[in-house]
Design a protein around this nucleic acid. Structure first.
Lengths: 207, 207
DNA sequence: TAAAATAATAGACAGTGTTCATTTTTTTGG
DNA sequence: CCAAAAAAATGAACACTGTCTATTATTTTA
């Protein structure tokens, strides 16, 4: 068979990614199957490999989509924020992960072999996410230290990421921790404290 | 065949775990194969399943071993510490992960299905690791807030974990970060600062 | 309309985890 | 010492996986 109905190559690619996304969200990274994706959209396994070449590239494409949805999620939250944009950011990080656990975890479950290079869209989407955070961090830092915003943002992302990971994978539950989100926020607040309110100025750091 | 040479059941179990550990360290979680482990110790695949019952339980047993080695690593480092035990702890966390990337990552790569319960030794070994950190954090906290040591320790572990994850999986490299360890240590120092030196006392927080 | 290019197929291959009837070995009891 | 019971080990079979590729079908082009 050749081209079926009126799907262009780009449309087919999109179909596969969308269905793959649905699959991945449903069964998780470990049970994801390219064959099953093909079956569900009425194509054969060969087509998937004609389009994406390899399992890794398919996952990469799906994860790129997850990054975009995640960034959208954060932007929407920030737009509706009550003013405490740092809290909004941390809550947005957590809520996306909690609402899409399999998709979120898949981003970190997937370790690509050293011979596979990341597609530029993947890196771009990822960079955008970092940028969203960096912007907010910079806005909260006083002029003299604002230049350190990128590095501090990286560190705070890692901090929140660690807390979110432990929240989703059960580590915190094992430790007896019941409120990972507030814990993460407390850490972030600490790091921004000397900046947010100026040195010495009292600050309502909730625990 | 029945019992071969003089291996008791416990010895066989140990053989499998040791070889599995070696395998996992070599090829990583994604490429790990129970069949290969069996082959390498001169047994058939059936024996592995007679002993461990399932792939998940085998991984769990191997990861339990990793936890014990990790705790040993930290204890040894602490014993040889120059006095800055918090730094020693953070460095110990990172160095173990860096020296055993596949083993360390496998701990978090492995998501066990909800019907599988963790063996008690697994939880115990994990709790011990937490305890090591909690002890050091408590030692550094002043009396009035010492009761908060367990919760703060959990949070700091998550913080360091996040930084270590990004260091190993390439996220920090993508972000342009070249010194994840010092970044993590800076965050930990911040959280312990009001405690370590008392409020207002100057403190040598390196960045 | 014939030829070239493109798209899609599905069988084959080498793996995987898992199960289990069968065989081998060891232990036990008389 | 040897037969019967218990324990240990086997490996073929099953249903899956990712990957490759020769074949077939369709579309586009000239």
């Amino acid at each position: 068979m050749g081209r079926r109905s009126d799907h262009s190559r780009a449309e087919l690619e999109r179909m596969i990614i969308v269905e793959g996304h649905r699959q991945l969200a449903e069964v998780g990274f470990a049970r994801f199957s390219a064959r099953e994706v093909a079956k569900r959209i009425g194509y054969s396994i060969g087509t998937i490999y004609n389009v994406f070449g390899t399992h890794d590239r398919l996952i990469l494409a799906i994860n790129t989509r997850t990054f975009r949805l995640w960034a959208d999620h954060l932007r929407a939250r920030l737009q509706a924020s009550d003013g405490d944009r740092i809290r909004t950011l941390v809550e947005g990080y957590f809520s996306f992960a909690r609402e899409n656990p399999n998709l979120w975890m898949a981003i970190y479950d997937h370790r690509l072999p050293p011979d596979v290079t990341m597609p530029p869209e993947y890196e771009a989407e990822r960079a955008e996410l970092t940028e969203i955070v960096t912007k907010e961090v910079a806005a909260v830092l006083p002029q003299p230290v604002r230049a350190q915003a990128p590095r501090l943002a990286r560190s705070l992302i890692a901090t929140v990421h660690g807390h979110c990971t432990f929240a989703l994978n059960g580590t915190f539950a094992l430790m007896g921790e019941t409120n990972p989100l507030e814990l993460a926020l407390a850490r972030v607040r600490e790091s921004l404290k000397p900046a947010e309110g100026g040195v010495g100025k009292p600050h309502d750091a909730r625990s």
